[in-house]
């Protein structure tokens, strides 16, 4: 594995081994001395063309816990000569001797551009590109599910037989895409729930089950995991749905719907949440909710990815 651009091209073995390394990383985080010397002297660049405090900080903490030197490079705003700036920025980072680049960009494919164009040799980690993918989010979600379901016996295990329901704005969600590919690779069944306007065009060809009615999905799938996606209320203006009320009534995880879910269901949300819209406060704060675990697991997973792509045998690939 040279780069981490998407979950689609991860094999089951690769995915499980990332999750296993993340387990090791998580273990070290229980120690008093959290910091590892693994990436001492290596430079990790956080290249953020789009704001995302959560993801940036998560990678930052991960890099620091591995003792890497971290450069935060926020390149947001130069939209006029966007392309030039991606190339120029990449060449600059190459000249500065970056050992890994974490890139977040509003353009789908930007991470792959960076990996393919020959501007820079460092491993590229996609931290979210447009509507395409957000592989570390999917990995931390899978990690979280695995821990919830298998606890201390997680190592080496995939997610066979898990029933995951993902609800909300699937059309614009890179998290939904990365999760679908990864969860399927790991053996889980994925059901997408959304109004037709928010189902990605052609998603039936992807092999996900698509259900429009959330209550039907809850009764028929009996989900092990329900993942609620953030819905942007601006979507109303562009006729994806008529009103917030109608959205909440049909696709919000309300207290009533919580009651209908299996007792041991895991409730997930990639954050930031719209409380009272896609998820009620009670659901978000219930013991079933793994929202905060997702945040801490994010650090372990990103440590694992940085470690696996950056440490050791450089130039030996």
């Amino acid at each position: 594995m040279r780069h981490l651009l998407s979950t689609k091209d991860l094999s089951r073995e690769q995915a499980v081994s990332i999750l296993d390394v993340a387990e090791d990383m998580a273990e070290t985080q229980l120690r008093e001395q959290k910091k590892l010397a693994t990436l001492r002297g290596r430079t990790v660049v956080n290249l953020f063309f789009e704001d995302s405090t959560r993801t940036r900080i998560s990678f930052e903490v991960a890099a620091k816990r591995l003792s890497a030197d971290l450069i935060n490079f926020s390149a947001k705003g130069s939209s006029v000569s966007k392309g030039e700036s991606l190339k120029d920025t990449a060449q600059t980072l190459q000249a500065l001797g970056a050992d890994a680049v974490v890139i977040r960009h509003s353009s789908s494919g930007a991470a792959q551009n960076l990996a393919d164009a020959g501007w820079i040799n460092a491993p590229i980690i996609n931290a979210g590109d447009g509507k395409h993918e957000h592989p570390t989010q999917a990995l931390l979600d899978a990690f979280t599910m695995r821990r919830r379901v298998f606890g201390g016996n997680s190592r080496g295990v995939a997610l066979d037989g898990l029933r995951v329901v993902i609800v909300g704005d699937l059309a614009h969600s890179r998290v939904a895409r990365s999760n679908l590919w990864l969860l399927r690779t790991l053996g889980a069944d994925v059901t997408f729930v959304a109004p037709e306007t928010l189902v990605p065009f052609g998603a039936r060809d992807w092999g996900a089950n698509i259900v429009h009615d959330l209550d039907t999905a809850i009764t028929e799938v009996e989900p092990s995991v329900v993942m609620m996606l953030r819905v942007q209320l601006e979507r109303m203006q562009t006729s994806y749905f008529p009103s917030q009320q109608e959205y909440v009534r049909n696709w919000g995880l309300s207290d009533q719907r919580m009651q209908a879910l299996p007792e041991d269901v895991v409730i997930m949300h990639p954050g930031p949440m719209n409380r009272g819209v896609e998820i009620s406060s009670r659901a978000a704060d219930s013991p079933n909710s793994s929202v905060l675990e997702q945040v801490s697991n994010g650090v372990s997973v990103r440590m694992a990815v940085l470690y696996m792509l950056t440490s050791g045998d450089r130039g030996e690939k």
Binding site: K8, S108, G109, D129, G130, K131, H132, E133, A171, R174, R177, P200, F201, G202, A203, R204, D205, W206
Partner: peptide, 15 residues
């Protein structure tokens, strides 16, 4: 082109 592929790639579709 709008298709399962455009959705997979996250590129806005041209139906």
């Amino acid at each position: 082109n709008e298709s399962a592929l455009s959705s997979e790639l996250g590129l806005t579709g041209w139906p």
